[in-house]
Design a binder for these strands. Structure first.
Lengths: 343, 343
DNA sequence: CTGAAAGCGCTTACAG
DNA sequence: CTGAAAGCGCTTACAG
């Protein structure tokens, strides 16, 4: 391979001059600069990233720890990944991706062997086994997802509590007094998927405060089970006029179910989901929804992480926990509840 | 950070002894080995990956060049990525992920700066601008997707031609004589999505050979457009009794459409898709389909790539082009065509 | 404005 | 079986 020494020889200058000409870290005569540039072009020189990393202690690589858990909707994860990856690239960083099950191990490997300057953790659980590893690591970390303990890390998440309140409130104002909330599977909650209960508890509380009945249930993340779950919960609560979905699979399965039953939204049932624009458009979901903003969250996490990496944040600057406010995208699937059948 | 020198000092041996004790590349006395192991544990030593890469010219990293193109179904790409990533890890490699638009540039950067030992290209086009870069690179590359020119690379893909024949044949044997094929958008074909025309041409030919009428059309990759496309093509060919879908969005949109029209498969229409098991289960698609095997293709590509990287393949061993035979997963959505309406 | 040299943390012939 | 030393390809004080 062509090295900085080759460039120096061809340009007739020293290796340090080549280095400085390229980095611009000290003044260089026009003549030297031109000869270096020519030599670089002629030889097709690109610095060896490993050697540079060794010399500077900077890898210009960010570790991305994705977690694909059973009972969660994989395509949703992709949107977060893309937000992280694209933003990192814009800021000059590459992405080292881990999708392995044992995220703590992957993180330890990346961190201990100094492969990355910082890491982004996706799909963070309430008690996340990657967090102790991250806190002990010399590299900074940014999370997408709110853990129970946020010390030592920057945290970004959708404000799921506000989302829960917003959804109940929206339907309440339209006149609904009996609602159903279908969340992710209970299994997700048990292993620490805090966003599930954050939304659910807030929704419950808002409902109570307004005198609204809210039937909160868990649904499967799989087809066709979730279709049956939805059917069962609708049957169980015939008086419910509004349906809130914090479960992508449920949203994807709902159109078929409504068709089967000859129901349409919002005529017979008002429907409100929580998913991304991208998801809606890919799966033809014309339900109004709280935007989960995966790309934006990924972007925020990377931006903050890079600020930490590059020392733009003073060491004693506090860590942040930043919530994205839920936005309700109106696609026309909510309206006044149907008039009660006479009698 | 703790270096090999720290370990050597604590263990009371030389740095080379530590290195050899860890790599096992030369015999070590039991005593020395034990002291090294103790010191490693005590200090929590992990070799610096960059330094090791510089010394060995091996990064133990594989570049993964994903391409998310407009009009293609993003979640499908994720399955390939997971196949690649998980297999790489099993074989001891990490993944450097690129999702940027300019794949050729990303590849050049990874390759020139020696960040990777080899690369996997996903979603390869007939004329793929990443290929010239790859051929000029010192690292080997494996492709998922068949390009027009396969020289210098290992290629893995589903046998889309066989898939096209298989699907037509399957429906022909059930008695169908008029079929519809809905492919990806024409736009995908125009920019080199060879799998679209490979399947379509083979299907056309098989249909001709059997005296079957095949209406080949392109459909949108987006909702709700694809729903309208499907409706239009069904209206245009009322005599068609079989529907072949080489378009994930179409498959996802079909259930609603059939419900709307009061049709069911296979009673009124036999349906045959081309997508993965994972896709089918995530989106509740109970249509029989040719399995696109993304995880398997990703796995095959990485395995071959690692063989090349590690020199298990002799330099003069020819490059391979390996097709996965399509398997038809029967989910019961095909059957005999409906009896003709009398008259 | 420039060069010689040290150093980043490893691996691996070389010599014993 | 082991150690001293060279080398991988960079960057960056240091000295001029």
């Amino acid at each position: 391979m062509v090295t900085i020494g080759d460039v120096a020889r061809v340009a007739g200058v020293s290796r340090s001059t080549v280095s400085y000409a390229l980095s611009g870290k000290r003044a260089i005569s026009d003549q030297a600069r031109r000869r270096v540039e020519d030599a670089v072009r002629e030889l097709g020189y690109t610095p060896n990233a490993g050697a540079r990393a060794l010399a500077t202690s900077q890898t210009m690589v960010i570790g991305l720890l994705a977690r694909f858990l059973e009972d969660e909707f994989a395509p949703a994860m992709l949107q977060y990944m893309l937000g992280v990856s694209n933003t990192a690239r814009e800021l000059g960083y590459d992405i080292l991706l881990s999708t392995e099950e044992d995220g703590a191990r992957a993180l330890r490997r990346m961190s201990d062997s100094r492969m990355v300057d910082g890491v982004v953790l996706l799909n963070v659980a309430h008690e996340d086994d990657r967090l102790p590893v991250l806190r002990a690591a010399p590299q900074p970390g940014a999370l997408v997802g709110l853990p129970g303990d946020c010390t030592g890390v920057d945290v970004f998440d959708l404000d799921f509590e506000e989302a829960g309140r917003l959804m109940v409130d929206h339907l309440f104002r339209l006149g609904h007094r009996e609602l159903i909330l279908v969340s992710q599977p209970e299994h997700v909650v048990e292993r620490g998927g805090a966003y599930v209960w954050r939304l659910q508890n807030a929704a419950q509380e808002a409902a109570r405060a307004r005198g609204v009945t809210l039937h909160a249930t868990f649904g499967s993340s799989r087809q066709p089970e979730i279709g049956r779950d939805l059917a069962a919960v609708l049957d169980a609560h015939p008086g419910a006029t509004g349906l809130i979905l914090n479960n992508e699979a449920a949203a994807a399965a709902l159109p078929s179910l409504l068709h089967e039953r000859g129901l349409s939204a919002p005529r017979d049932l008002s429907v409100l989901g929580r998913y991304s624009e991208e998801f809606a458009s890919t799966f033809s979901l014309h339900y109004s929804a709280v935007e989960s903003a995966p790309d934006r969250l990924g972007r925020m996490a990377v931006r903050q992480l890079v600020r930490r990496i590059e020392g733009e944040i003073a060491p004693d600057d506090p860590y942040v926990v930043r919530f994205v406010s839920p936005e309700l995208v109106d696609r026309g699937s909510t309206g006044a509840p149907p008039a009660r059948a006479p009698g």
